[in-house]
Design a protein around this nucleic acid. Structure first.
Lengths: 185, 185
DNA sequence: TGTAGCATGTAAGCCGTTACATGATTGA
DNA sequence: TCAATCATGTAACGGCTTACATGCTACA
């Protein structure tokens, strides 16, 4: 019954490996709240943005598995800062090395609707694609800001590669949608 | 508690609108088995391939909602052929017209792993991307066969557009992955 | 004759979301 | 002082998958 972490759990665990190696140990680790924000900044573009409640429950599960360590700070407001453990890093490496990689899954509501264009006519489909183009542009700008924040810092070289990948995808998608619009015209 | 069909249910309902308008009424409609095959041929490239058991249960649900009609053929082997009803078509149109369209969700295990390249090194990431290129090529051929089977039949003009969209996506993705491979040395 | 495909279903369970709930802290 | 943000959870439930079960039909 779910002893093995899911891909989403590994993704969250992976985000913890980018813990800024701070001089001050007081700031080590991330709270569930911060991890959720980080997921919203990066993970959501090519995976999912887990619900806040799931972030907390996954963290608790990873803790019982010994893959993260919770640093509890008592006080008026109790906060927990989570760090990945050595065992967590080893488990993550093992997962990367041995688990086979599924083909990406795309849930594309726009394509799904376009398939049914014979029910609505070309006009409505054009509107659909134009709206989608707007959203794509906004998404691309959001991801562009994330990419810019990564700069050319060697420590986030791979996240930067992934962000560039995403940006290419959005640009290509915009081009393709424009071509489709032309064919509907 | 789920009185309203989900997007997947509408997708399956939509597939039923492409029922070949046969001269022989005996062949009208699709069995759950055939619908599952059709989903595997088309829907899976940009939505999901629902499990067989889900196809059957969704069909039963759509029937209680009056959106499909089940034609039961008794005999040695009882089969049910499902057709979309007039109400089903109206409901589907209403859904297309009024429900707002979510942005696509991409679950990309390859990108997820690439993000964690600092844990494994560039060599393993190159292997990952090369494997992915192989899979992409196979996928593209599968979708190419589907596209070819649609031809330029006006009745499946929109599914053909969607298939072309998918083919563009696969080609662009291959190009982008090759560029990433180049940047990994 | 036996295997692959056709055809339909039940049961159990997990992943993840939505809705709800609580309270501290910070800054306008 | 009041709102936004920080921070952490619980409860309920739905969608979907996996595993299991059954039996017919066509064909090599």
């Amino acid at each position: 019954m779910g002893q093995v972490p899911t891909a989403t759990a590994y993704a969250l665990l992976g985000l913890l490996t980018f813990d800024r190696d701070n001089a001050e140990p007081d700031d080590a680790g991330l709270t569930g709240y911060e991890l959720k924000q980080r997921a919203d900044n990066t993970l959501r573009f090519y995976w999912v943005s887990p619900a806040t409640s799931q972030v907390y429950s996954e963290l608790r599960r990873l803790e019982t598995l010994g893959l993260v360590h919770a640093d509890v700070r008592p006080g008026r407001r109790t906060t927990k800062r989570y760090r990945i453990t050595a065992e967590g890093v080893a488990t993550l490496r093992e997962w990367l090395r041995t688990t086979d990689t599924d083909f990406p899954v795309l849930k594309h509501p726009v394509a799904l609707r376009l398939m049914l264009g014979h029910l609505t006519g070309a006009d409505q489909m054009r509107g659909l694609l134009e709206d989608y183009l707007d959203q794509l542009g906004r998404r691309r700008h959001e991801l562009g800001a994330v990419r810019a924040s990564l700069g050319d810092d060697e420590r986030v070289r791979y996240p930067a590669l992934v962000a560039d990948w995403g940006l290419s995808y959005y640009r290509d998608e915009e081009r393709t949608v424009r071509r489709l619009l032309g064919r509907l015209g």
